[in-house]
Every structure is written in C-alpha cells, then in structure tokens.
Design a protein around this nucleic acid. Structure first.
Lengths: 334, 334
DNA sequence: TCAATTCATGTAATCTGTTTCAAAAAATCG
DNA sequence: CGATTTTTTGAAACAGATTACATGAATTGA
C-alpha cells in the first residue's frame, strides 16, 4: 500500500519548530507568531499533511461522530424503502455536516442496549440519533439509564425518558379527522400499528376530531404485518373482500397510502367520489402519484436540524425538551 | 458527563495480569492459557469494558471505516430523493456490516481530490465508495493517481482508471431499443444527460438496437436541468408544446419516468396506446405507480455486495476489474 | 536601562491500546 | 531427571497527536 504518511513530528522538524507549535499553529491557537504559523502552514500544505484523527480523538476524549440508526434491512427483499426516512436522513446529514460532525450510519443489528453502550464507551461515537422509534421505547429508556446520549425521531408518552423530535402526531390525526367530519364520512379506517407511539397519538387525534363532531362513526384498524408495499396492498385487498369499503382512510405513511389506493382502484373505487384518503409525510412522490395524495406535511430539514440540536444538548448534559415540528394538511386529490 | 470509562490497564489490574495479556485474551490470540482468558473475559464483562477504538486504530493503522459518498443535498429544497440511490445505500450498508466495516456517510461537500485524500491520510476512513458518478470522472481518476482507495457505482469508458460496478448500461439501453423496434416506434425520446458515462452507454445501446432494425427513426434528447421531479416535469411540458409527442421514451430513472408520465397524462396521452416508456432501476415504487412502470431492473443488494467486495480488493492492492450486474427488462403497463 | 509583564516556544507527560522481545513457566524427550 | 523445546507472560517501546508547565524572548513601564 501507500507508504508511511507524514506526521506532525515530521512537519515540526521540517519547519524547525516543535510539535506543540505545529499543533497550535494548525489548531488556530492565538499565541503563535504569525510568521511561525505561516511557515508551519506552508510546510504542512506542501507535504499534504493531515492530522491523524485517531490520535487526536484518543487524546481529546470525544469523537465528533454520531451514529444514525436506520432500519432499512428488516427483510432482505421486502425491505423498507419508504423515502420519508431517507428525506429525514438527508436532513440529519446536512445538519451534522454544518456542525462538522461525522455521521456513522448503522443498521440496528444491535438489538440490546449494551451493544449500543459499547460503541460509546469504545469511543466509536458520541451517541445516537435513531430515525424511527418502532417498538423500542423500552430499550431507549434503558439507554438513558445507562447514560448513553441519544435522541429519537418519534413521539412521546408518559413513560418516555428520552428526548424526541417528531411530527405533531396528535394534530396530524386531528386534521385528518376534521377533514373526514367536514365531508361527513362515517366509516373510517385507520391504517397503522398503534403499538408505535407516534401512531397511537395520531389515532387519538383522529378520534378527538371525530368525537367532537358528535355523530356516529365506525373506526376500524388495519395494520400491514410489516412495512412493505405488498403487505399493505394485500391486507387492503383482503379487507375489501370481507367488509364494506371504508369511505375515509387515514394511512400512517404516503407509501402505505399508495399501496392502499392501488387496492381500492382495482376494486373500482375512486378517490373523492368514493372515499377520502389522508396520507402522512408528504414525500416527494406524493404530489406526483396519481391521484395526487392528500397528506400531512412536515419539514424534514427542520426535523434534521432539531434532532441534531437536541442531541448536542443531550451531550452537554442540558436535558432538552422533546418537541414537535409544524404539521399541516396538504389537500390534493384524495 | 459520565465518568472515566474503564481501560485495559484497569482490567489487567483487576484480573492480576498484564496489559498485553488482556489485549491477547480479548483479541483471540491463540497463545493464552484458557484459564487466563476466561478470567480476563469475565472481568471485562463484569465491568462492561470496551476497547477504545481510537487507541486501537492509532496503533493498527487501518480504520475499518469506509466513507460512502452520496449526493443528496444539491439543492436544499429540490434535493434528489430518487429512492434508487437509497436502495443502493441499503445494499452497501448491509454488505459492509457483514464485513464488520463501519460506514461513514458523507455528503460530497468536498469537491476536489485533495479533501478526499485528507480523510485517508488523516486516518478517518480507509477509502471511498461513491454512489453515483455524476460528472466526476476526471476527479475520480485523480484520486486513483493519488493512491486514494475508491470504487464507484457507475459505468466506465476508455479514460476510466478506477473500478466501477454498475448496471449493464449498454444492455439496458439495448433492451429498451428492442422493445421500441418490436412495436415499430420511430419517434424516440431519450431522457438523460449523456455527459454522464452511464447514460452515454445506455444511449449507445439504445441506438445499437434501433440501427440494427434497419428502419428510419428520430432520436431526440431531453435533459432536465437538475435531477428534481419538477425539472423533468416542466421540461416535458415544454417539449410537448413545441414538438410532436414522442411515441417511445427511454428515461434514465423511474423517478424521471414518473414525472414525464404526469406531463404526458395531462397532455391527454396514454401509455401503450400513445407511447411506450421504459424507465430504469425498478425502484420499489415502480410497480405501484399507475401506470405500473416498464423498466430495467438491477439487484441493489448484489450491487452493494460487489461494490464492497471490489473496494476491499482495491485496499489490498489487487486491481479488481470493473463489472456489471445482471440487467433485465421488466415489462409492465408502459 | 533594568525590572515586570506578556507572548511565544519547547520539554515532558498523557491518552489507551498493540507489538516486539526477552524472560519465565510448562511441556516434551532421551 | 536434566536438557531442550514450546507456551505463556510481562516490560518497554510505540502509534501520533494534545496539554500542563516551564523557560526564553519580546515588550512595556518606570
């Protein structure tokens, strides 16, 4: 391979100064004579010197690296490809790079709290940003107890001990509910697994809106067995075989919404005329699907920025409050 | 913050052995008495010891970390959200985690070869996997000259000095062309910027198929100014205003294809009846869009595995050959 | 001009592992 | 059983930076 790279000691020798001076010159320390600094910088540049970040991190204790945990491989073939999570990832990536933090992307192969803790005590990363909460609330709480710095995208409930950033799920649900009420829809289908905190909150918001309207309605629930496109499609096909078609649907994601629309389509049902549907996330594809999706929008860049900001606060031992980002209903053709 | 974590020296003391013995016991070195190893392991486990990876990397020279470069923030709002690139990312992530390599996800803020080189000489990462070649062929070649280990997803041409893994772009183009010939289509539109090597190859394949059919055809080109959904939509709307509608379209991505179909739709044109369209990538959404997209499929898991395999070969100074993955036409409703 | 500050630089210690090499312990053998 | 070989262990060096502290140089003030 390539030969030994130049070290700080080499630069020091070549510039006729000592190691600490080089360190200070490069690190922007104020007490360095301008002439010396220039000399050092020019030698460093000339020889393409780059500080060894491992040595630096070893000495400095912190890593400036944050692990982002993303579950994109639950099943090999039917893996999640909900673009929303990637929009979120893009937001986080941008926010981290602004703060000059490195992003270590990990699949959640690690299922127990200890293996996460190890990455922190092994000085691999300073902590974790979890994109998606899944059914890990308990494990996350355990991480907090073990002093592992972390924040998660999601929602919180009484038991939640960690900081979350998320959609205003209750409001999102409420907005969908309002729309259904306005159009006098009464046979309502909620699509999503309410074991997930976020989805539970949405369902509560939805019910709140429906109940204040003071009229009779049925609210049923459909939960695809995993998060794949086909799972949702199939589940909907089954449901249409056995029950009367719903006249209003609130889906937990635009991706799920698309799958469900396909099933409704094939069953001869048309949006607006036969049913209303509200999706969630307003992913880039939502406005280009046909029909164009009515959905709940959140700003993923803001989300990323907030997640990172809160994480940094956690690192500095200020216990930041969980927060939600602005959440609005975008009405299109469903 | 949390107090000083336990070090290897601590474990050594607690187990009544020396540091090197602990190192060997944990590292699975053969020459350690089973009883000693057990003692060390139990002490380590009991105190939740984790080796400091920075110290380890400092001594060992390699980082076991690979940077994956992904361009997902070219424009703040209109950023690329082509799910294909994320499917690819998922594939790479899985392949890396199998080999116990860490994945550092970086945006390509670094535009010149030197800043990439710095990450390698600074021992941040062992090298790079670029997901997408863009118009960076020249810069990539420069990286090779600077001994920066790297591979890229893409295609290669005469000047390409680095290893690529990619779709069989020529074949992909050829398959699309064949389909057009079979249906006697003559007014063909190629959507994509042929400054990108991959797209140039596809266009060549397309032309090959068309020319062997020995009949007259027109082949025009449309290139959205950036990769956003709207750019493609708008470009297509413009084109339909000024020129006769094409009867066959070959789009460089399914995402672009969707945008274009929207434009065609609004212009009253229907797939199959009025035009054929072949997309590229077979993203998860392709088969659920309406109309269901005819497209070119590649296995992104295989792609990820190959990229990682080749990268490792590059690291070990075997110059691996570039290769293409199986590429097939999936005929659906366009 | 000399003492008192302030600024710039260097020496040595430190961070936490791995590796080399030599010594000690254990196992093998005639 | 003593000599030889093999296994197991430890002391010290090393990886490449940063930091505390000390010293020498430059500047200020009287």
């Amino acid at each position: 391979m390539s030969k030994k790279p130049i070290t700080m000691a080499d630069v020091a020798r070549l510039a006729n100064v000592s190691k600490p001076t080089v360190s200070r010159a490069l690190g922007g320390h104020p007490n360095v004579k301008p002439k010396t600094r220039e000399k050092v910088l020019s030698v460093a540049r000339e020889h393409g010197y780059a500080v060894n970040r491992n040595a630096k991190k070893l000495r400095e204790k912190y890593t400036n690296t944050i692990a982002v945990i993303l579950d994109f491989s639950s099943h090999r073939r039917h893996r999640i490809t909900d673009p929303f999570i990637f929009e979120l990832l893009a937001g986080v990536s941008e926010a981290l790079s602004i703060r000059k933090q490195d992003l270590l992307l990990s699949p959640p192969t690690l299922s127990d709290a200890n293996s996460y803790k190890e990455l922190v005590s092994g000085r691999v990363v300073d902590g974790f940003i979890f994109l998606g909460q899944g059914a890990n609330d308990a494990m996350f709480n355990e991480l907090v107890k073990k002093d592992v710095p972390m924040v998660a995208w999601g929602g919180n409930t009484e038991g939640t001990k960690y900081c979350t950033v998320g959609s205003d799920n209750f409001l999102g649900g409420f907005l969908a509910g309002e729309r259904f009420v306005q159009h006098n829809k009464k046979n309502i289908l909620f699509v999503g697994n309410t074991e997930h905190i976020e989805l539970r909150l949405r369902r509560e918001g939805l019910e709140k809106a429906l109940s204040t309207a003071d009229y009779d309605y049925t609210l049923s629930e459909l939960q695809g067995e995993d998060f794949s496109f086909n799972a949702h499609y199939e589940a909907m096909v089954q449901l249409l075989k056995s029950s009367p078609a719903p006249d209003a649907i609130f889906a937990y994601s635009d991706t799920a919404a698309m799958a469900i629309i396909n099933a409704l389509n094939e069953h001869g049902l048309e949006p607006i005329r036969d049913y209303l549907l509200v999706g969630y996330n307003d992913i880039a594809q939502a406005s280009h699907f046909s029909p164009r999706l009515t959905t709940i929008r959140q700003d993923t860049f803001l989300a990323g920025a907030l997640l990172v900001e809160k994480f940094m606060a956690v690192l500095n031992d200020n216990s930041p409050m969980s927060s939600t980002i602005p959440t609005e209903l975008i009405v299109r053709n469903t």
